[in-house]
């Protein structure tokens, strides 16, 4: 037992303005959402794993638990549990997001894990930001500046730094996530089972596109490597956009080569991750080839 040693102070603000006050008067703070990531770190207790003297527990801020939707978008507070997102939004949210949440684990875990926490894990990337980037989602940040709490919306893709890590500005709190609820006509998600426990060999891939006649439009491919970061680029998207299916084997090989030349230039990737991505791209091409070849003649 190590009672009394390194016990951080816990702040439990009830509103965002209370949160702003706490941030103004305390330095060296860390934010605590569901705790599913922090509590799995090997040195969380008894050491100073959180690296702070103050923990701000966000679970009691009512504004962060709200969610609402209209015809075009769904907005979730950062403290909405993933389980609640998947169950309440099953009919409206894009299918890849629901299957991403379901791939994370059983309800005991997803009831505690929150959308904000899944985006803001510090030294590892979860599979959620990649899927949200593919869906062109936005986030609202609350930033303490000049003794006031300012609000700013930004696309998630703009918050990914050059190393592929999701980074909020200093002293910022992610307060809401806005997700468009239109269903792209082709969407596919894949994630290895042990994404959190074996990050070196895990990979999550989200792919969305509009399928018009036999041509892909507005394609978006986002690959998440938990240790290295999130890999996406307009160059990759352009490879897939305006492709006419069915593809020949040689065309598939050239797509694959261009894709890997891009990923290898910026990220460290293990042979297993490479094999998984190759198999995913192969499956997508095969499915779209089949779709193109089985289309009624009048549509062709």
């Amino acid at each position: 037992m190590v009672e009394g040693l390194n016990s951080p102070n816990i702040h439990t603000p009830k509103t965002l303005s209370e949160y702003g006050n706490i941030m103004l008067h305390n330095t060296n703070t860390s934010l605590w959402a569901g705790g599913t990531y922090i509590m799995t770190r090997p040195d969380v207790y008894p050491s100073r794993a959180t690296g702070t003297d103050n923990i701000i527990y966000l679970g009691e801020i009512e504004e962060l638990h709200r969610f609402q939707r209209n015809d075009r978008v769904a907005e979730f507070g950062a403290m909405v549990p993933l389980y609640q997102m998947a169950t309440s939004g099953k009919g409206v949210l894009p299918k890849i997001l629901v299957s991403n949440i379901e791939s994370i684990g059983c309800s005991i875990i997803t009831r505690r894990a929150t959308i904000g926490g899944a985006l803001c894990t510090p030294d590892m990337t979860t599979s959620i930001p990649g899927t949200l980037i593919a869906l062109s989602s936005n986030v609202e940040m609350k930033i303490v500046k000049k003794k006031r709490l300012h609000s700013r919306w930004a696309p998630i893709s703009r918050l990914v730094d050059k190393n592929g890590r999701f980074q909020l500005p200093p002293k910022a709190l992610l307060s809401r996530v806005r997700i468009a609820i239109n269903q792209p006509s082709y969407q596919k998600f894949f994630c290895t089972k042990d994404f959190m426990s074996k990050p070196e060999d895990s990979v999550a891939i989200a792919f969305v596109a509009d399928w018009e006649q036999d041509i892909l439009q507005n394609a978006r491919l986002v690959i998440t490597l938990p240790k290295s970061g999130i890999c996406f680029s307009r160059d990759i998207d352009n490879i897939f956009t305006a492709l006419r299916f069915p593809l020949e084997d040689s065309e598939y090989d050239s797509i694959y080569n261009v894709l890997f030349a891009f990923i290898s230039s910026s990220f460290q990737i293990s042979p297993l991750q490479k094999a998984i991505i190759r198999s995913f791209v192969g499956t997508v091409v095969e499915e779209l080839n089949r779709k193109a070849l089985t289309m009624p003649i009048s549509e062709n």
């Binding site: 009394g4 040693l5 016990s7 509590m39 207790y45 959180t50 923990i55």
Partner: peptide, 11 residues
């Protein structure tokens, strides 16, 4: 209890 605030419930 008088506890470290981040002590896991299992402990």
């Amino acid at each position: 209890f008088s506890l470290n605030s981040n002590k896991p419930l299992s402990l």
